[in-house]
Write a protein that binds this DNA or RNA. Structure first.
Lengths: 207, 207
DNA sequence: ACACGCATACATACATGAATGTAAATGCCA
DNA sequence: TGGCATTTACATTCATGTATGTATGCGTGT
Protein backbone atom coordinates (compact mmCIF):
# COMPACT_ATOMS: atom_id res chain seq x y z
CA UNK A 1 0.00 0.00 0.00
CA UNK A 2 1.99 3.05 -1.17
CA UNK A 3 1.98 5.84 1.25
CA UNK A 4 0.64 8.99 -0.32
CA UNK A 5 1.91 12.54 -0.18
CA UNK A 6 -0.31 15.19 1.25
CA UNK A 7 -1.06 16.39 -2.24
CA UNK A 8 -1.99 12.89 -3.35
CA UNK A 9 -4.20 12.39 -0.32
CA UNK A 10 -5.90 15.66 -1.06
CA UNK A 11 -6.35 14.56 -4.65
CA UNK A 12 -7.94 11.36 -3.39
CA UNK A 13 -10.32 13.36 -1.27
CA UNK A 14 -11.29 15.51 -4.23
CA UNK A 15 -11.73 12.45 -6.42
CA UNK A 16 -14.08 10.99 -3.83
CA UNK A 17 -16.10 14.19 -3.75
CA UNK A 18 -16.23 14.32 -7.54
CA UNK A 19 -17.38 10.73 -7.56
CA UNK A 20 -20.02 11.52 -4.95
CA UNK A 21 -21.41 14.29 -7.15
CA UNK A 22 -21.61 12.00 -10.14
CA UNK A 23 -23.12 9.02 -8.40
CA UNK A 24 -25.49 10.97 -6.16
CA UNK A 25 -26.73 12.77 -9.25
CA UNK A 26 -27.30 9.52 -11.09
CA UNK A 27 -28.81 7.36 -8.39
CA UNK A 28 -29.98 9.70 -5.66
CA UNK A 29 -28.31 9.99 -2.31
CA UNK A 30 -30.11 7.25 -0.44
CA UNK A 31 -29.58 4.62 -3.07
CA UNK A 32 -25.92 5.42 -3.41
CA UNK A 33 -23.57 3.25 -1.40
CA UNK A 34 -20.20 4.39 -0.24
CA UNK A 35 -18.79 1.36 -2.01
CA UNK A 36 -20.16 2.65 -5.28
CA UNK A 37 -18.66 6.08 -4.74
CA UNK A 38 -15.32 4.55 -3.85
CA UNK A 39 -15.26 2.40 -6.96
CA UNK A 40 -16.27 5.33 -9.11
CA UNK A 41 -13.22 7.16 -7.78
CA UNK A 42 -11.00 4.14 -8.34
CA UNK A 43 -10.59 3.61 -4.59
CA UNK A 44 -11.97 1.33 -1.96
CA UNK A 45 -14.48 2.00 0.72
CA UNK A 46 -11.77 2.30 3.35
CA UNK A 47 -10.47 5.41 1.66
CA UNK A 48 -13.90 7.00 1.99
CA UNK A 49 -13.86 6.28 5.71
CA UNK A 50 -10.39 7.64 6.08
CA UNK A 51 -11.43 11.00 4.68
CA UNK A 52 -15.04 11.23 5.79
CA UNK A 53 -16.81 10.03 8.87
CA UNK A 54 -19.84 8.69 7.02
CA UNK A 55 -22.20 9.46 4.13
CA UNK A 56 -23.58 12.52 5.88
CA UNK A 57 -20.09 13.92 6.35
CA UNK A 58 -19.34 13.30 2.69
CA UNK A 59 -22.59 14.97 1.70
CA UNK A 60 -21.78 18.01 3.81
CA UNK A 61 -18.34 18.29 2.31
CA UNK A 62 -19.93 18.14 -1.12
CA UNK A 63 -22.36 20.93 -0.26
CA UNK A 64 -19.50 23.04 1.04
CA UNK A 65 -17.95 23.01 -2.43
CA UNK A 66 -20.55 25.41 -3.73
CA UNK A 67 -22.43 28.44 -2.61
CA UNK A 68 -26.20 28.31 -2.45
CA UNK A 69 -27.89 30.62 -4.92
CA UNK A 70 -29.91 32.29 -2.17
CA UNK A 71 -26.73 32.77 -0.17
CA UNK A 72 -25.17 34.27 -3.28
CA UNK A 73 -28.05 36.73 -3.53
CA UNK A 74 -27.71 37.67 0.14
CA UNK A 75 -23.99 38.23 -0.24
CA UNK A 76 -24.38 40.32 -3.38
CA UNK A 77 -27.10 42.46 -1.85
CA UNK A 78 -25.03 42.99 1.27
CA UNK A 79 -21.90 43.82 -0.68
CA UNK A 80 -23.48 46.12 -3.27
CA UNK A 81 -26.02 47.84 -1.15
CA UNK A 82 -24.87 51.37 -1.90
CA UNK A 83 -23.85 50.72 -5.46
CA UNK A 84 -26.63 51.16 -7.96
CA UNK A 85 -29.94 51.51 -6.19
CA UNK A 86 -31.95 48.85 -4.44
CA UNK A 87 -33.92 47.55 -7.38
CA UNK A 88 -30.89 47.20 -9.59
CA UNK A 89 -28.99 45.61 -6.76
CA UNK A 90 -31.70 43.03 -6.37
CA UNK A 91 -31.94 42.40 -10.05
CA UNK A 92 -28.20 42.04 -10.57
CA UNK A 93 -27.87 39.83 -7.49
CA UNK A 94 -30.53 37.51 -8.86
CA UNK A 95 -29.00 37.36 -12.32
CA UNK A 96 -25.59 36.74 -10.81
CA UNK A 97 -26.95 33.87 -8.72
CA UNK A 98 -28.40 32.36 -11.89
CA UNK A 99 -25.05 32.60 -13.60
CA UNK A 100 -23.25 30.99 -10.69
CA UNK A 101 -25.82 28.24 -10.60
CA UNK A 102 -25.14 27.41 -14.23
CA UNK A 103 -21.60 26.36 -13.47
CA UNK A 104 -21.33 22.59 -13.80
CA UNK A 105 -20.49 21.82 -10.18
CA UNK A 106 -23.09 24.21 -8.80
CA UNK A 107 -25.66 22.77 -11.12
CA UNK A 108 -24.78 19.21 -10.10
CA UNK A 109 -24.70 19.83 -6.38
CA UNK A 110 -27.91 21.81 -6.35
CA UNK A 111 -29.70 19.24 -8.42
CA UNK A 112 -28.65 16.67 -5.87
CA UNK A 113 -29.81 18.82 -2.98
CA UNK A 114 -33.16 19.73 -4.51
CA UNK A 115 -34.06 16.65 -6.49
CA UNK A 116 -31.91 13.79 -5.34
CA UNK A 117 -32.14 13.58 -1.59
CA UNK A 118 -34.58 13.10 1.23
CA UNK A 119 -32.96 12.93 4.64
CA UNK A 120 -29.34 12.14 5.29
CA UNK A 121 -28.97 10.92 8.83
CA UNK A 122 -29.43 14.05 10.93
CA UNK A 123 -29.44 16.36 7.96
CA UNK A 124 -32.73 17.62 6.67
CA UNK A 125 -32.32 19.24 3.24
CA UNK A 126 -35.71 20.86 3.55
CA UNK A 127 -34.70 22.69 6.70
CA UNK A 128 -31.49 23.74 5.05
CA UNK A 129 -33.44 25.30 2.23
CA UNK A 130 -35.93 26.85 4.61
CA UNK A 131 -33.34 28.63 6.65
CA UNK A 132 -31.72 30.12 3.60
CA UNK A 133 -35.08 31.08 2.16
CA UNK A 134 -36.00 32.94 5.35
CA UNK A 135 -32.70 34.77 5.49
CA UNK A 136 -32.89 35.72 1.84
CA UNK A 137 -36.49 36.82 2.08
CA UNK A 138 -35.63 39.17 4.91
CA UNK A 139 -32.70 40.70 3.06
CA UNK A 140 -34.77 41.08 -0.10
CA UNK A 141 -37.68 42.59 1.78
CA UNK A 142 -35.43 45.23 3.30
CA UNK A 143 -34.13 46.10 -0.09
CA UNK A 144 -37.64 46.43 -1.49
CA UNK A 145 -38.58 48.52 1.52
CA UNK A 146 -35.76 50.88 0.69
CA UNK A 147 -36.89 51.04 -2.94
CA UNK A 148 -40.41 51.78 -1.78
CA UNK A 149 -39.22 54.52 0.57
CA UNK A 150 -37.32 56.07 -2.33
CA UNK A 151 -40.47 55.98 -4.46
CA UNK A 152 -39.05 53.48 -6.92
CA UNK A 153 -41.85 50.91 -6.66
CA UNK A 154 -45.23 51.47 -8.20
CA UNK A 155 -47.95 52.25 -5.70
CA UNK A 156 -49.88 49.06 -6.17
CA UNK A 157 -47.01 46.83 -5.10
CA UNK A 158 -45.94 46.75 -1.45
CA UNK A 159 -42.46 45.60 -0.41
CA UNK A 160 -44.02 42.45 1.01
CA UNK A 161 -45.77 41.57 -2.22
CA UNK A 162 -42.70 42.38 -4.28
CA UNK A 163 -40.65 40.13 -2.05
CA UNK A 164 -43.18 37.34 -2.32
CA UNK A 165 -43.30 37.59 -6.08
CA UNK A 166 -39.56 37.79 -6.65
CA UNK A 167 -38.76 35.11 -4.15
CA UNK A 168 -41.29 32.64 -5.46
CA UNK A 169 -40.31 33.32 -9.04
CA UNK A 170 -36.65 32.70 -8.28
CA UNK A 171 -37.53 29.49 -6.51
CA UNK A 172 -39.73 28.27 -9.32
CA UNK A 173 -37.25 29.16 -12.01
CA UNK A 174 -34.44 27.39 -10.20
CA UNK A 175 -36.44 24.26 -9.39
CA UNK A 176 -37.79 23.98 -12.90
CA UNK A 177 -34.42 24.51 -14.47
CA UNK A 178 -32.64 22.04 -12.22
CA UNK A 179 -34.99 19.33 -13.46
CA UNK A 180 -33.70 19.64 -17.02
CA UNK A 181 -30.63 21.86 -16.92
CA UNK A 182 -29.52 20.91 -20.41
CA UNK A 183 -32.69 22.08 -22.09
CA UNK A 184 -32.35 25.81 -21.78
CA UNK A 185 -30.32 28.50 -20.15
CA UNK A 186 -31.38 29.65 -16.69
CA UNK A 187 -29.68 32.96 -17.16
CA UNK A 188 -31.48 33.60 -20.44
CA UNK A 189 -34.97 32.41 -19.59
CA UNK A 190 -34.81 33.14 -15.92
CA UNK A 191 -33.22 36.46 -16.57
CA UNK A 192 -36.02 37.38 -18.95
CA UNK A 193 -38.68 36.59 -16.37
CA UNK A 194 -36.84 38.52 -13.68
CA UNK A 195 -36.26 41.53 -15.95
CA UNK A 196 -39.92 41.60 -16.83
CA UNK A 197 -40.94 41.45 -13.21
CA UNK A 198 -38.67 44.32 -12.32
CA UNK A 199 -39.94 46.28 -15.28
CA UNK A 200 -43.52 45.74 -14.15
CA UNK A 201 -43.03 46.77 -10.54
CA UNK A 202 -40.76 49.73 -11.19
CA UNK A 203 -42.24 53.19 -11.20
CA UNK A 204 -41.45 54.69 -14.57
CA UNK A 205 -41.16 58.39 -15.28
CA UNK A 206 -44.41 59.62 -16.75
CA UNK A 207 -44.05 61.22 -20.19
CA UNK B 1 -55.78 -15.83 10.23
CA UNK B 2 -59.41 -14.95 9.83
CA UNK B 3 -60.39 -14.27 6.29
CA UNK B 4 -61.72 -10.76 5.90
CA UNK B 5 -64.79 -9.48 4.10
CA UNK B 6 -64.28 -7.51 0.95
CA UNK B 7 -65.07 -4.31 2.81
CA UNK B 8 -62.60 -5.18 5.53
CA UNK B 9 -59.92 -5.95 3.00
CA UNK B 10 -60.53 -2.63 1.34
CA UNK B 11 -60.28 -0.93 4.70
CA UNK B 12 -56.96 -2.67 5.26
CA UNK B 13 -55.73 -1.39 1.94
CA UNK B 14 -56.74 2.16 2.82
CA UNK B 15 -55.13 1.88 6.23
CA UNK B 16 -51.90 0.81 4.60
CA UNK B 17 -52.04 3.77 2.23
CA UNK B 18 -52.78 6.15 5.10
CA UNK B 19 -49.85 4.68 6.98
CA UNK B 20 -47.62 5.10 3.94
CA UNK B 21 -48.50 8.79 3.76
CA UNK B 22 -47.67 9.30 7.42
CA UNK B 23 -44.44 7.36 7.48
CA UNK B 24 -43.15 8.53 4.10
CA UNK B 25 -43.77 12.08 5.23
CA UNK B 26 -41.90 11.54 8.46
CA UNK B 27 -38.91 9.54 7.28
CA UNK B 28 -38.73 9.97 3.53
CA UNK B 29 -39.56 7.25 1.06
CA UNK B 30 -36.19 5.54 0.82
CA UNK B 31 -35.69 5.23 4.54
CA UNK B 32 -39.15 3.85 5.08
CA UNK B 33 -39.40 0.09 5.26
CA UNK B 34 -42.53 -1.78 4.37
CA UNK B 35 -42.34 -3.31 7.81
CA UNK B 36 -42.63 0.12 9.34
CA UNK B 37 -45.64 1.00 7.21
CA UNK B 38 -47.28 -2.30 8.09
CA UNK B 39 -46.77 -1.78 11.79
CA UNK B 40 -48.04 1.77 11.56
CA UNK B 41 -51.23 0.37 10.07
CA UNK B 42 -51.47 -2.33 12.71
CA UNK B 43 -50.73 -5.07 10.18
CA UNK B 44 -47.81 -7.19 9.15
CA UNK B 45 -45.64 -7.00 6.08
CA UNK B 46 -47.53 -9.89 4.51
CA UNK B 47 -50.56 -7.67 4.26
CA UNK B 48 -48.58 -5.06 2.37
CA UNK B 49 -47.43 -7.69 -0.10
CA UNK B 50 -50.93 -9.04 -0.51
CA UNK B 51 -52.25 -5.64 -1.56
CA UNK B 52 -49.23 -4.15 -3.29
CA UNK B 53 -46.51 -5.66 -5.39
CA UNK B 54 -43.72 -3.66 -3.75
CA UNK B 55 -42.87 -0.20 -2.45
CA UNK B 56 -43.11 1.35 -5.88
CA UNK B 57 -46.58 -0.06 -6.34
CA UNK B 58 -47.60 1.31 -2.97
CA UNK B 59 -46.12 4.68 -3.82
CA UNK B 60 -48.02 4.79 -7.10
CA UNK B 61 -51.26 3.92 -5.37
CA UNK B 62 -50.61 6.71 -2.91
CA UNK B 63 -50.04 9.22 -5.73
CA UNK B 64 -53.24 8.11 -7.39
CA UNK B 65 -55.19 9.27 -4.36
CA UNK B 66 -54.69 12.89 -5.24
CA UNK B 67 -54.63 15.11 -8.28
CA UNK B 68 -51.49 17.04 -9.08
CA UNK B 69 -51.90 20.80 -8.81
CA UNK B 70 -50.67 21.32 -12.36
CA UNK B 71 -53.10 18.69 -13.57
CA UNK B 72 -55.81 20.51 -11.68
CA UNK B 73 -54.91 23.71 -13.49
CA UNK B 74 -54.95 21.96 -16.86
CA UNK B 75 -58.36 20.45 -16.14
CA UNK B 76 -59.85 23.72 -14.96
CA UNK B 77 -58.54 25.61 -17.95
CA UNK B 78 -59.86 22.98 -20.32
CA UNK B 79 -63.25 22.88 -18.62
CA UNK B 80 -63.79 26.61 -18.25
CA UNK B 81 -62.26 27.83 -21.43
CA UNK B 82 -65.30 29.73 -22.66
CA UNK B 83 -66.50 30.84 -19.27
CA UNK B 84 -65.00 34.09 -18.10
CA UNK B 85 -62.16 35.13 -20.35
CA UNK B 86 -58.70 33.65 -20.59
CA UNK B 87 -57.00 35.70 -17.90
CA UNK B 88 -59.69 35.08 -15.35
CA UNK B 89 -59.76 31.42 -16.29
CA UNK B 90 -56.04 31.18 -15.63
CA UNK B 91 -56.28 33.07 -12.42
CA UNK B 92 -59.19 31.07 -11.05
CA UNK B 93 -57.60 27.79 -12.12
CA UNK B 94 -54.45 28.70 -10.23
CA UNK B 95 -56.29 29.74 -7.10
CA UNK B 96 -58.37 26.60 -7.26
CA UNK B 97 -55.28 24.45 -7.51
CA UNK B 98 -53.91 26.19 -4.43
CA UNK B 99 -57.10 25.44 -2.54
CA UNK B 100 -57.05 21.81 -3.53
CA UNK B 101 -53.43 21.54 -2.53
CA UNK B 102 -54.25 22.79 0.95
CA UNK B 103 -56.36 19.73 1.66
CA UNK B 104 -54.54 17.54 4.18
CA UNK B 105 -54.07 14.53 1.95
CA UNK B 106 -53.01 16.55 -1.06
CA UNK B 107 -50.61 18.50 1.08
CA UNK B 108 -49.14 15.31 2.52
CA UNK B 109 -48.78 13.45 -0.75
CA UNK B 110 -47.27 16.41 -2.58
CA UNK B 111 -44.84 17.08 0.19
CA UNK B 112 -43.73 13.48 -0.09
CA UNK B 113 -43.40 13.72 -3.86
CA UNK B 114 -41.53 17.01 -3.88
CA UNK B 115 -39.48 16.87 -0.69
CA UNK B 116 -39.39 13.30 0.51
CA UNK B 117 -38.32 11.11 -2.36
CA UNK B 118 -35.54 10.57 -4.84
CA UNK B 119 -36.04 7.57 -7.08
CA UNK B 120 -38.38 4.70 -6.38
CA UNK B 121 -37.30 1.70 -8.39
CA UNK B 122 -38.25 2.63 -11.95
CA UNK B 123 -40.14 5.74 -10.95
CA UNK B 124 -38.45 9.06 -11.36
CA UNK B 125 -40.38 11.78 -9.52
CA UNK B 126 -38.47 14.45 -11.40
CA UNK B 127 -39.65 13.14 -14.75
CA UNK B 128 -43.15 12.94 -13.40
CA UNK B 129 -43.03 16.59 -12.48
CA UNK B 130 -41.41 17.51 -15.76
CA UNK B 131 -44.06 15.93 -17.88
CA UNK B 132 -46.83 17.69 -16.01
CA UNK B 133 -44.94 20.98 -16.13
CA UNK B 134 -44.59 20.74 -19.90
CA UNK B 135 -48.24 19.92 -20.40
CA UNK B 136 -49.36 22.70 -18.12
CA UNK B 137 -47.02 25.23 -19.69
CA UNK B 138 -48.45 24.51 -23.10
CA UNK B 139 -52.04 24.87 -21.94
CA UNK B 140 -51.24 28.08 -20.09
CA UNK B 141 -49.35 29.53 -23.04
CA UNK B 142 -52.33 28.95 -25.31
CA UNK B 143 -54.54 30.72 -22.86
CA UNK B 144 -52.19 33.66 -22.66
CA UNK B 145 -51.98 33.71 -26.44
CA UNK B 146 -55.72 34.03 -26.56
CA UNK B 147 -55.65 36.85 -24.05
CA UNK B 148 -52.97 38.56 -26.10
CA UNK B 149 -55.00 38.18 -29.29
CA UNK B 150 -57.96 39.75 -27.52
CA UNK B 151 -55.79 42.67 -26.43
CA UNK B 152 -56.05 41.81 -22.74
CA UNK B 153 -52.32 41.67 -22.02
CA UNK B 154 -50.20 44.79 -21.83
CA UNK B 155 -47.95 45.31 -24.81
CA UNK B 156 -44.70 44.78 -22.95
CA UNK B 157 -45.57 41.22 -21.94
CA UNK B 158 -45.67 38.47 -24.56
CA UNK B 159 -47.61 35.24 -24.01
CA UNK B 160 -44.32 33.39 -23.62
CA UNK B 161 -43.07 35.71 -20.92
CA UNK B 162 -46.40 35.70 -19.14
CA UNK B 163 -46.35 31.91 -19.17
CA UNK B 164 -42.83 31.81 -17.86
CA UNK B 165 -43.63 34.21 -15.05
CA UNK B 166 -46.87 32.58 -13.97
CA UNK B 167 -45.53 29.09 -14.21
CA UNK B 168 -42.36 29.78 -12.27
CA UNK B 169 -44.26 31.71 -9.63
CA UNK B 170 -46.72 28.88 -9.14
CA UNK B 171 -43.84 26.43 -8.86
CA UNK B 172 -41.95 28.58 -6.39
CA UNK B 173 -45.01 29.29 -4.27
CA UNK B 174 -45.93 25.61 -4.10
CA UNK B 175 -42.40 24.38 -3.34
CA UNK B 176 -41.87 27.01 -0.68
CA UNK B 177 -45.20 26.34 0.93
CA UNK B 178 -44.80 22.58 0.96
CA UNK B 179 -41.66 22.99 3.04
CA UNK B 180 -43.59 24.54 5.92
CA UNK B 181 -47.28 24.08 5.17
CA UNK B 182 -48.37 24.93 8.69
CA UNK B 183 -46.79 28.36 8.71
CA UNK B 184 -49.10 30.22 6.36
CA UNK B 185 -51.90 29.74 3.94
CA UNK B 186 -50.97 29.00 0.33
CA UNK B 187 -54.30 30.31 -0.88
CA UNK B 188 -53.87 33.59 0.96
CA UNK B 189 -50.20 34.33 0.30
CA UNK B 190 -49.99 32.54 -3.00
CA UNK B 191 -53.26 34.01 -4.09
CA UNK B 192 -51.99 37.48 -3.31
CA UNK B 193 -48.89 37.02 -5.42
CA UNK B 194 -50.92 35.59 -8.29
CA UNK B 195 -53.50 38.36 -8.12
CA UNK B 196 -50.77 40.96 -8.19
CA UNK B 197 -49.11 39.33 -11.17
CA UNK B 198 -52.37 39.29 -13.10
CA UNK B 199 -53.00 42.87 -12.14
CA UNK B 200 -49.59 43.86 -13.47
CA UNK B 201 -49.86 42.11 -16.81
CA UNK B 202 -53.46 43.02 -17.57
CA UNK B 203 -54.19 45.90 -19.86
CA UNK B 204 -56.32 48.32 -17.91
CA UNK B 205 -58.72 50.80 -19.43
CA UNK B 206 -57.03 54.18 -19.70
CA UNK B 207 -58.89 56.95 -17.85
C1' DA C 1 -80.91 -23.28 5.48
C1' DC C 2 -76.89 -25.82 5.77
C1' DA C 3 -72.71 -28.18 4.42
C1' DC C 4 -68.71 -28.26 1.87
C1' DG C 5 -64.66 -26.93 -0.48
C1' DC C 6 -62.01 -23.47 -2.41
C1' DA C 7 -59.91 -19.13 -2.22
C1' DT C 8 -58.82 -15.11 0.13
C1' DA C 9 -56.45 -12.03 3.19
C1' DC C 10 -53.69 -11.93 6.00
C1' DA C 11 -49.54 -13.58 9.62
C1' DT C 12 -45.33 -15.90 10.05
C1' DA C 13 -41.09 -18.16 8.52
C1' DC C 14 -37.26 -18.54 5.48
C1' DA C 15 -33.38 -17.21 2.55
C1' DT C 16 -30.58 -13.91 0.77
C1' DG C 17 -28.11 -9.89 -0.34
C1' DA C 18 -26.54 -5.41 0.48
C1' DA C 19 -24.66 -1.89 3.17
C1' DT C 20 -22.58 -0.14 7.19
C1' DG C 21 -18.92 0.69 10.55
C1' DT C 22 -14.87 -1.09 12.68
C1' DA C 23 -10.61 -3.68 12.99
C1' DA C 24 -6.51 -5.28 11.08
C1' DA C 25 -3.10 -5.47 7.39
C1' DT C 26 -0.08 -3.22 4.07
C1' DG C 27 3.68 -0.78 1.95
C1' DC C 28 6.05 3.08 1.32
C1' DC C 29 8.35 7.49 2.44
C1' DA C 30 10.03 11.23 5.45
C1' DT D 1 11.36 3.23 11.97
C1' DG D 2 6.91 5.12 12.67
C1' DG D 3 3.00 6.67 10.79
C1' DC D 4 0.05 7.79 7.09
C1' DA D 5 -3.24 6.74 3.65
C1' DT D 6 -4.93 3.47 1.93
C1' DT D 7 -6.70 -1.82 1.15
C1' DT D 8 -8.69 -5.79 2.97
C1' DA D 9 -11.13 -8.48 6.40
C1' DC D 10 -14.64 -9.01 9.81
C1' DA D 11 -19.08 -8.65 12.16
C1' DT D 12 -23.54 -7.17 12.17
C1' DT D 13 -27.89 -5.36 10.94
C1' DC D 14 -31.55 -4.41 8.09
C1' DA D 15 -34.65 -4.87 4.39
C1' DT D 16 -36.41 -7.35 0.67
C1' DG D 17 -39.05 -10.90 -1.70
C1' DT D 18 -40.85 -15.45 -1.49
C1' DA D 19 -42.74 -19.47 0.69
C1' DT D 20 -45.72 -21.43 3.92
C1' DG D 21 -49.37 -21.55 7.43
C1' DT D 22 -53.99 -20.31 9.00
C1' DA D 23 -58.75 -19.35 9.72
C1' DT D 24 -62.48 -17.80 7.77
C1' DG D 25 -65.64 -15.77 3.87
C1' DC D 26 -67.82 -16.87 -0.10
C1' DG D 27 -70.14 -19.37 -3.63
C1' DT D 28 -72.37 -23.40 -4.91
C1' DG D 29 -75.09 -27.49 -4.49
C1' DT D 30 -78.47 -30.07 -2.07
Amino acid sequence: MPRRTKAEAEATREALLDAAEDVFLEKGVSRTSLEHIARHAGMTRGAVYWHFKNKADLFHAMLDRVKMPLQQIIDDITAERQASGPLNTLRLATLHAFEMLERPRSCRVHTILIHRCEFISDINPVELQNRLASDCREVVRRCFQQAHDEGLLIDEVTPDVATLMLHSMIGGLVHDWLRTPDNYSLSAHGGEAIDNLFYLITRHAQV
